[in-house]
Amino acid sequence: MNHPTSEQLISYFYDEAGPTERAELKTHLQTCQQCARNLNAWRSARTDLNAWKMMPKRAGSAAPLPVLRWALAGAAMLLCFGLGGFAFSWNSRALPAALQARLRTQMRAEALQVAQAETERARDSMAAACEKRTREFVMAFAKESYAQQRKEIRALYAALDKIDSQRAADYVALKKELDTLAVNADAELRSAENGLIELATFTQTPAVSPQE
């Protein structure tokens, strides 16, 4: 007798076999004890597996779903031309402390990485294009972006000033980060400008790809 492969049998077992295959396997199982026995073993294993139920959450951490929230991130996460830093603030009550800390650290590290990677990428594409007009455009774009960034920071400060004094404490940390961001933005712009000026004399296409 030609037994079906275990792949065919498992498809049948999980109801993923096509109608024709299904009918054939059904017929086979009615006459083949060996395959029927295999299937029965699987069936009992499958039933046993259900004994390990999973509670939604262990006792003591049955808090509502920790909905992540980047407080004010929409405005504060001022990514401009990839060169800007992130001001990143979490709603501390809504987020598990461990994840919050992790992501915070991560964002800081990322801000630096992004700045560097984007500068490199810009240099790569610039070198590829190697055209004066493009360089001028990118330079202007970088300047414009930083101007925009500063404007948004000022707007955010204005918004923060309007928040009730009782909630002001919550935003002290964010404000501090924004101060740092503003300072960093200046430094990064200068460094970006230097990088772009370097490009003016750059003729060779670097082989390094920042992707993956």
């Binding site: 492969t5 049998l9 498992i10 498809s11 999980y14 073993a41 699987w42 294993a45 499958r46």
Partner: peptide, 13 residues
């Protein structure tokens, strides 16, 4: 994947 699943269930049983 299918043959692994078959083997997994056999081993579990």
């Amino acid at each position: 994947v299918k043959s692994r699943m078959a083997e997994a269930l056999t081993q579990m049983s």
